[in-house]
Write a protein that binds this DNA or RNA. Structure first.
Lengths: 175, 175
DNA sequence: TATTGTTATACTCTATAACTATA
DNA sequence: TATAGTTATAGAGTATAACAATA
């Protein structure tokens, strides 16, 4: 019968559609940021396709590799995740053979996270690929590169400062 | 009995944890972008709290307002969404009273999207709040602002170009 | 009493697949 | 035969709530 499957539709590209008026969006910093992040996200996947690792999981791997014995909770904190999210993330890393849970010295409740030997070997190559990918981007950006990097760091700082500035002291607001 | 609920944990902040070595992450453009986007996302919610609208839904509203009669599919395309995602998004906008589906002239299959009168009124205020929010950010960024904006636009372009460059012509690759 | 991690559950976002009614 | 939208479903990702073990 040759069943017709529908369009495969490789979505996610978010590119400007000709003939559509974007109004104030084009001028907004936040929208520019989203567009850039969207594009970079897809681009990262291309660079890391061989390892099947998302940007977030890559960050987790780097954190564990640079901080052997890192607690699960601290990993979550560094990545803006809830405890339960850090658990899921760690589960995935262990099931995939990247990392292991060891006993944490000094606290029987906690785990210390460590890369496996395989994980270390794989991460070395993955890091090289990501670094190369980043270099290619910076090269393509030319003169814009350094200013962009500086601006982003500053933006993260500024926006965080605004969010965390205790306007009315964020004591579990009831209203 | 005064049941103890666990920590409310206002998560998502992703701020640098003292004592943790971030290794190469601090130097990566992609990671800086993620940090900035994370901070800005939370900050946007603060600015738009009154309307309960996410950055994405805000973008959809602006697109519909500037392109009355916009097709559902085109909206999705502009936002990098699958057809089914555009449907969910539109459903939400209509249920919340922001927008309506009208018949599209010339094609009985399609919808033309329009803001409701209420939607227009609300969006005017929301847009003003978002614009003000953006201005505050730019002011806080000072000299970095314009360069950052330019760099982001360029980055979106560069990363998209790399992704969409037909390396082997993306004709439904089988292998 | 507070913290670390766990379990169970639910909600959001977004994709795939198959269907309809047009074109 | 292709397109616009729909339905049903599934998979990430991440949250809340309640619990056990330990501090």
């Amino acid at each position: 019968m040759d069943v017709k499957t529908d369009s495969p539709d490789p979505e996610g590209l978010m590119l400007p559609v000709p003939g559509v008026d974007y109004g104030p969006l084009d001028g907004l910093l936040g929208y520019a940021l989203r567009r850039a992040q969207n594009a970079l996200y897809l681009d990262f996947y291309r660079a890391a396709a061989e390892w099947d690792v998302s940007p977030q999981r890559f960050a987790a791997l780097v954190l564990i590799s640079r901080n052997p014995g890192l607690r699960q909770g601290l990993l979550g904190q560094a990545m803006g995740l809830h405890r339960s999210g850090a658990l899921r993330l760690t589960d995935w890393l262990t099931v995939q053979g990247w990392a292991e849970r060891h006993d944490a010295p000094g606290d029987a409740r906690a785990w210390g996270l460590h890369l496996t030997a395989t994980g270390k070997r794989r991460l070395a190559k993955l890091e090289a690929a990501v670094a190369e990918h980043d270099r290619a981007l910076l090269a393509a950006l030319g003169e814009h590169g350094p200013a962009l990097k500086a601006g982003l760091d500053r933006l993260a700082w500024v926006a965080t400062a605004q969010s965390t500035t205790p306007q009315n002291k964020p004591r579990r607001q009831k209203s």
